[in-house]
Design a protein around this nucleic acid. Structure first.
Lengths: 198, 198
DNA sequence: TACGCTACTTACCATTCGGTAAGTACAGGG
DNA sequence: CCCTGTACTTACCGAATGGTAAGTAGCGTA
């Protein structure tokens, strides 16, 4: 059944996000559902192929989210800011995906071919165009750098949340969580508000 | 010999950074040196203990670097900016360490007790104090959020470099690399240059 | 010369891993 | 009623893993 496949992909996403590709065994994934690992192999053929399906589903969602955002306003700066706030919210909401993609980023140099970066390339292209409109200057590397810095600010935070929660204590952690989006907006608007020196 | 220990820790740092804790076998580490895995076990007792020594050595370097920076100037904003540029340079220079710490961040929720966050706590404390001085406002959560965003901007970039190099091609990648520090400075100075609304 | 210590090695082991082989149960169609 | 395909299961396998046991070689000391 297609439903069983989906359940496997769900469980695999959680497991891979939590323990990484090598820290996760297919038996482990299957045991979190009422199936054996052979059922998993029946549907996906191999661990690698299951992982590929997990990645595909995540990048499809990313592109869908990105396409949905960025059409709310005509002001370039405002649009830029809103797009990144949307990315922050989506990344927080799908933190398993975010963690898994961070692991993939760390691993994919080794995981050979890794033409798997296509989703990132499309992502960056779109965002860099938005950045150029918002910055209004000509150097494409600057736009790309800014985009990457903001993605880093977002993803690193999402990935750190469990550690931060434990380290900071509930009160400070809650304050940080609520401050984060506001502070991200400040960072973006202030950056967009100043002229660049060459 | 102490030298053999150091060589094991060096090799382990590279291996753990590249493949992660679970993707690395102690036999693999030993094979990259003219020793057997039993020599490794003789010196460190277990894989976990070796990993702990690797982490300890990294966090000691981090604290040393941080203590060395931040004393160059008396102006709070300038000091803040310089500290983060120093962190960027050090993270790039020790990219294995950066990658390994990113993996640890992803793993340590699971790796139980993980009182291993102490180095991060001290790091954040120091940086947040600098941020408060530079921002000149009272909300500690804002300072912490800003610090974390800049750390994210730095670490995410360092970790992504192999992927970016492959994805962007040599020319664009070089442009991005040289633009990154400049753009980070722009991000910081512009953020410090505007007043906060509550 | 004997002793103990450090720095290793070879041999071995139980467990876990991803994957294959060979089935069982059942549904739908001719 | 049989045939075929799907969705699984139990049984099994070779390779790799972390770790233990039991050495061996060399050095410093009494």
């Amino acid at each position: 059944m297609a439903d069983t496949r989906e359940r496997f992909i769900d469980a695999a996403t959680r497991a891979f996000a939590e323990r990484g590709f090598y820290g996760t065994s297919i038996a482990n994934i299957a045991e979190s559902l009422p199936f054996t690992k052979q059922a998993l192999l029946h549907h996906f053929g191999s661990k690698e192929k299951l992982y590929a399906e997990v990645l595909t589903r995540i990048s499809e969602r990313l592109m869908r989210d990105l396409a949905a955002a960025g059409t709310e306003t005509s002001d370039a700066s405002e649009r830029f800011e809103n797009v990144f706030v949307n990315i922050l919210r989506a990344s927080l909401e799908n933190s398993d995906d975010t963690r898994l993609l961070m692991r993939e980023l760390l691993d994919n140099k080794r995981r050979a071919e890794s033409a798997r970066t296509w989703y990132l390339a499309a992502f960056l292209d779109t965002l860099t165009d938005l950045a150029r409109d918002a910055l209004g200057d000509g150097a494409p590397a600057r736009s790309l750098a800014l985009v990457y810095q903001l993605l880093g600010a977002i993803n690193y935070f999402v990935v750190s949340r469990p550690t931060l929660a434990q380290m900071l204590g509930a009160k400070t952690f809650d304050e940080l969580s609520t401050a984060y989006e506001h502070e991200l907006r400040s960072l973006i608007t202030s950056r967009l508000g100043v002229a660049d020196e060459p």
